[in-house]
Design a protein around this nucleic acid. Structure first.
Lengths: 217, 217
DNA sequence: GTGATGCTTCGACGCGGGTCGAAGCGTCGA
DNA sequence: TCGACGCTTCGACCCGCGTCGAAGCATCAC
């Protein structure tokens, strides 16, 4: 993971969406051959998996544990110096709302998580995980989130991970991913042109306020 | 962190105790000159700090965030293949009880944490941290743990980190470190000859049972 | 003072690995 | 069937960096 190109690839994969080899070569700024070599190494190291689809090969992170390592590394890495106005805007957008692997993060993510706790919709079970309360069941049913299916999934139901910009936790796990997906479906968030970036829409702001009593700063 | 020698050094520092440059050279299996070069790099990278003491230079991890990265990396690293009976015994000992940076981990660590939660001595505040309950205040006072001093410390009071052998959380932060230190003082645990290893004593077993209703498997 | 110890700096060596050009292989569309 | 496209494999280059010997600089013991 210590190589510049590989680090760029892993960061690009951090939002959970699978990317093709060519795309990864582009974000890493290396040739296709070089990228192929790097991807082989990452795959042998168990950091990424690959699925063939036609003449494309799509790569994604092996699991949330890998994502956690990358987030943890980001936390202790020296901040990227901002060079241009565009970079500055991008950084600000990412700080406001973004995906972390496949769930909501940034200011919106931590605010949403705090609202879920404060509103008594989920509660910690003392074992690093969270459970949905009766009140939460009801509220999420309104949002057409299928909790039974999420619980049946092999994946961890709900946990949190520390947000590297906000230094506060946000929701992850199957529940975090499902809620994030649903909110995007509802048009509460739209994906930005920058990778991982999300933008909170007007409907999203009122929706979060009405349904979750969540005010995003 | 990707270099073998540096990784060995960082792992050796994971129990929080500062080590001298020569000691680190020994655990990494390199010469003093090479170790010096590595330590310079780690220092420039902000991963470790150094304090001079006479003709010795003691190194320690920069903070708990660095320790978290190392633990996270350990979690996704391929398990070290066991070669000898000695290694196997060491691994078993570490799995039973060890220090993680400066607090209790392993089976004993996760059992202790669960007992604190189940006994209502601490409770999560929903923000990734924990507070001591009134009942907990009382119990810890009996153990002569100075909570006021811990709260005054600049360090985070109490949190958890995921145990990489047990896959369950254990207590960290100022409270985790203080409790661990106190239990060692009381002779509940003794430091093993292997780095980071702790051994649960007979008094420790009864003490944990009596004071915390904690049964270590 | 003198010598020993702990650590760093300097210099030189050599290997590992990241890099890309060229070629090969499978897939898709016409 | 043919060419375009996406990706991998092979081969060669070469820079970077981990390594240690030798020397230098502190500190400690006597």
């Amino acid at each position: 993971m210590a190589d510049r190109a590989r680090a760029a690839m892993l960061t690009a994969l951090l939002d959970g969406r699978p990317l093709a080899a060519g795309e990864l070569a582009r974000v890493a700024g290396v040739s296709a051959q070089t990228a192929s070599a790097h991807l082989t190494k990452l795959r042998e190291g168990g950091l990424i998996t690959v699925v063939k689809q036609g003449r494309h090969r799509y790569f994604r992170l092996q699991g949330h544990e890998v994502a956690q390592v990358i987030e943890a590394l980001t936390r202790i890495s020296p901040p990227v110096e901002v060079r241009s106005l565009k970079q500055s805007r991008q950084a600000a957008a990412l700080q406001a709302a973004r995906t972390c692997y496949d769930h909501l993060a940034g200011r919106a993510g931590t605010a949403f998580f705090a609202a879920l706790i404060d509103g008594g919709l989920i509660e910690p079970d003392g074992r690093e995980a969270y459970e949905v309360t009766a009140k939460g069941e009801e509220r999420l049913h309104e949002l057409e989130v299928d909790l039974a299916a999420l619980r049946a999934a092999r994946r961890r139901f709900a946990g949190h991970c520390l947000d590297w910009t906000e230094r506060r936790p946000h929701l992850n796990g199957a529940l975090g991913a499902a809620l994030t997906g649903r909110m995007i479906e509802l048009g509460w968030f739209v994906r930005g042109n920058t990778r991982r970036a999300l933008t909170l829409t007007g409907e999203g702001r009122t929706g979060l306020q009405d349904v979750f009593a969540c005010v995003v700063p």
